[in-house]
């Protein structure tokens, strides 16, 4: 019972598959294939992120993190965090372990939150996106998202620090 509680999400997804297998077996098999394929596609990136996070947890001194992303960095640190966020490729959540490591080492919440926010800008993808939606659309989105990411960093810090 405890195991199910701990893995509620996994249990629900598993249950969904079992149920759908009875209702619509063909589609369910296709969905399973799609999921496995995406997993295989993303697994190397995830392994790298986890290994890099654990490397940083052992070798990166909290002092360095605090100097680059700590409280004293001010606006510069938050903007730098947001800029760093735009460089990363892959789905946002794949990098959660890395962000968590930064926080554990004493990074300022606003810096990490801005990084997460700016992740919506995927620099390597910009030319690709522009080919579909046009440059004006993409450039405006990039500028607005960047500004919002910085604001989001400060808002997150304000809201979460309250308690």
């Amino acid at each position: 019972m405890n195991l199910i509680k701990k893995h509620l999400f996994e249990t629900v997804v598993g249950g969904l598959y079992v149920a759908l297998l009875f209702i619509s077996p063909d589609k369910t098999v296709l969905a399973l294939k799609e999921g496995v394929w995406l997993l295989i596609d993303m697994l190397p990136v995830f392994i790298c992120v986890v290994l890099f996070s654990s490397f940083l947890s052992v070798f990166l001194s909290p002092k360095t993190v605090q100097r680059i992303m700590g409280k004293e960095t001010g606006v510069k640190g938050v903007v730098a965090g947001a800029l760093f966020g735009t460089l990363i490729v892959g789905p946002l959540w794949i990098l959660f372990p890395l962000y968590k490591t930064f926080l554990n080492k004493g990074a300022r919440l606003a810096v990490v939150a801005a990084m997460v926010g700016a992740f919506a800008i995927k620099t390597p993808w910009i030319p690709y996106a522009a080919s579909f939606l046009g440059w004006p659309f993409i450039l405006i989105t990039v500028v607005l998202t960047m500004s919002y990411a910085i604001l989001e960093g400060y808002l997150m810090e304000m809201i979460l620090k309250k308690r």
């Binding site: 996994e10 969905a31 999921g35 052992v58």
Partner: peptide, 29 residues
Amino acid sequence: AVKMGGIQFLKQLPMLISIFLLIGLFDKF
């Protein structure tokens, strides 16, 4: 660090698999 990474990976793997399987369901249904 390698050991830590390995443990983290195994710990998060069930969640990771579930997320992708759910994405598969969304995509097809």
